[in-house]
Design a protein around this nucleic acid. Structure first.
Length: 647
DNA sequence: GCTGATGCGTC
DNA sequence: GTCGGAC
DNA sequence: GTCCGACGACGCATCAGC
């Protein structure tokens, strides 16, 4: 592990990517393949491979206590050290006693030799074994004991990086994509092949082994081993979006959670963006994808979904469903993200919760069908494959009632839900202007499946958990803007704009998928407190709590740290240090004189701030030195904005 | 059994 | 999710 | 164009302490 730590230190010392890659490649070549494989996982900033569900459940708080104990330093000394380094790992390296001579406990309690004696035992594999015990142990007390044992057996330099791995962040300017490059360099194989193997295996350590043995081509994707999601880049405007490709396929941008559905016959499992299995939290979803004609992996979004109309809102959801329904004939619409949040991370899902926060899976892509990985087929073709899969889905599972089966199979694939009016608009104004694509290749509202009738029984409700995301076309900004308005009116976030000729690129953010959002009005706010940052932002006050006016009081409404340049942050730091009202250590209450303009995507009710509201994705647009705090926006205006977001 | 602190994963 | 900075 | 680091709010699960 010492060599690992030394390599990491060298990598941190340069900002040049090629140099980082060279250093890492040298390291990989200098240790055994097994050690290099584990180290590759560590270098990507994780204690375990991506696909493993294990988590340490050891965070900064517990680690801080342990480091404090082991080092024998006072709270004040540690704080000072943290102020200097900005990273608990670095603090540990600086503060832990260097145990050149082995301490009194030379053996583990079970009699095995103490690693500090053996030296060789402090390898990445051994450390990972220790991580596994920590992950398995129950409760902070037990975990803490194991961490203490681990840290007291190694050098400070090793401890530095072990802490960094435990906190999930190496902060050495290198992540998995550079590890891929280093593997390629170390074993003389093309980066492309490494990337592809890693994409398929979802395990950078395994990938390294495959590369070392020159058999990257043998890497195969397996069902129920999730792979990375294709990500979208932001577009500034409709005009900007169409600069990338003229003929755009357009979907609503759904404010739910991204999910990969792995399907094989009656076995269906859902995985999240971090590749964790989330099926457990959504027990009503798997059935909707059972009985596909072939094994398949779909890409889509799990949404909180109201099957009800405006006049008949579901119990308990009045507060959540901030957006009134536009079309009275609608039988379903997206619910705000806040509703879905109540189901995130749930291990037990009650019947009541399923009724209060119904969910649906909105499928919009497929990248595995039959035995074939179809990521290298254009979206246009994948769409057709998706249609086919869904069209040939076998009748619902045997556990469904006979009556229900008849009902579903006889149902007209008409779309009475909210998408219908969108479809009409877009048929008229958008689809007419489509390019070379034949209409038959474009998914239509007929693909909105099983969402037609208002579900009355639980069984019926279960039959409505799948929607094929409607797709439209646009080739002018005006068309895009019209679609955008319609999407927003439906309670969706904005638009996804996709190049129909593009391949599916797992785990990568390209320009063939674009996301278009529209910003809410900004708020002018007054900074009331400032905090020190972490990592490279230690030493500057980079994090600002800000408030709106309410009479002559100031009520906090959020915190923001992004948006200012380094130079501006430095300038602000100076000012805040000179205008501190109360120094609370890491945080300072400051004179409420600085006005900022902040942007955000959304407003929420909140207990966290005194105003009773909070901002979603707040960021600083600019400093407003031209404004006095008395000219900042009021709580009344904030409340107005909150109400207006419902449309 | 309740509450607050902590860790984690979602956006 | 958001953003600025470095390559 | 791509990668990286430094950060926001929220809700759930778990555990320690009452």
């Amino acid at each position: 592990m010492l060599r690992f730590a030394q390599t990491a230190d060298s990598i941190a010392a340069t900002t040049k990517k090629l140099e980082k890659i060279r250093l890492l490649a040298d390291y990989f070549r200098s240790v055994s393949v097994d050690e290099a494989a584990v180290a590759a996982v560590f270098f990507s900033g994780r204690p375990f491979p991506m696909w493993e569900e294990a988590t340490l459940q050891v965070g900064g708080s517990l680690l801080w206590r342990i480091v404090s104990e082991l080092s024998g330093r006072s709270e004040a000394e540690l704080t000072t050290a943290y102020r200097e380094h900005g990273d608990l790992g670095a603090v540990t390296g600086a503060v832990l006693p260097d145990r050149e001579s082995p301490s009194h406990h030379e053996n583990w309690s079970d009699g095995r030799p103490h690693p500090s004696k053996a030296g060789a035992e402090s390898t990445p594999t051994a450390i990972q074994q220790a991580f596994r015990s920590i992950a398995t142990a129950r409760g902070p007390a037990a975990k803490g004991a194991l961490v203490r044992q681990l840290l007291s057996s190694i050098s400070p330099l090793e401890a530095k990086y072990i802490i960094k791995i435990m906190t999930g962040d190496l902060r050495i300017g290198l992540k998995e994509s550079l590890v891929e490059e280093a593997i390629a360099k170390a074993f003389g194989v093309p980066v492309k092949n490494v990337q592809r193997a890693n994409m398929l295996l979802g395990d950078i350590g395994e990938t390294l082994k495959f590369a070392a043995e020159q058999r990257l081509a043998a890497a195969k994707m397996r069902l129920f081993h999730p792979i990375g999601f294709m990500l979208a880049s932001p577009a500034e405007s409709a005009e900007d979006a169409l600069a990338y490709f003229q003929n755009a396929w357009v979907e609503d941008k759904y404010d739910g959670i991204r999910a990969q559905a792995h399907c094989s016959g009656d076995v269906v499992r859902f995985f999240s963006r971090t590749r964790d299995e989330i099926t457990e939290s959504f027990p009503e979803l798997p059935h909707a994808l059972r009985g596909l004609p072939r094994d398949a992996i779909l890409d889509g979004e799990i949404m909180a979904w109201s099957y009800l109309t405006e006049e008949d809102p579901p119990e308990g959801l009045e507060a959540q469903a901030s957006s009134p329904v536009q079309s009275k004939s609608a039988t379903g619409r997206a619910l705000p993200f806040g509703a879905l949040q109540q189901r995130l991370g749930r291990k037990k899902v009650s019947e009541k919760l399923m009724r209060d926060v119904p969910v649906t899976y909105v499928a919009f892509d497929v990248f595995y069908a039959g035995d074939e990985l179809v990521i290298d087929r254009p979206l246009r073709e994948r769409a057709r494959i998706l249609e086919q899969l869904l069209a040939e889905q076998k009748p619902p599972h045997h556990r469904d009632t006979e009556a229900q089966r008849r009902k579903i199979s006889s149902r007209e694939p008409q779309a009475k839900l909210d998408f219908s009016f969108q479809a009409e608009t877009s048929r008229g104004s958008v689809a007419e202007s489509r390019g070379p694509m034949a209409e038959s290749t474009l998914p239509t509202t007929a693909d909105v499946r099983r969402t037609t009738n208002f579900p009355t029984t639980d069984d019926e409700r279960h039959a409505t958990n799948l929607i094929r995301a409607p797709v439209f076309q646009a080739s002018s900004p005006a068309e895009l803007n019209a679609l955008f308005d319609a999407a927003q009116a439906r309670g969706n976030e904005g638009l996804m704009i996709k190049d129909p000729e593009s391949f599916y690129t797992p785990g990568r953010r390209g320009k063939s998928w674009l996301k278009l959002k529209r910003e809410m009005a900004t708020l002018d706010v007054v900074v009331t407190a400032a905090e020190y940052g972490h990592g490279k932002r230690i030493g500057v006050l980079s994090d600002y709590t800000f408030a709106v006016r309410d009479g002559d009081r100031l009520l906090n409404i959020g915190k923001a740290c992004s948006g200012l340049t380094d130079a501006e942050i430095a300038e602000m730091t100076k000012w805040f240090l000179d205008h501190t009202i109360e120094d609370q250590g890491f945080r300072r209450l400051v004179e409420p004189k600085i006005v900022l303009e902040v942007a955000f995507n959304n407003m929420m009710k909140s207990d966290r701030h005194s105003s009773g509201y909070a901002l979603r994705f707040p960021r600083i647009v600019r400093l407003r030195p031209d404004k006095l705090p008395e000219e900042a926006d009021t709580l009344a205006r904030a409340v107005e904005l909150f109400k207006s977001q419902g449309h």
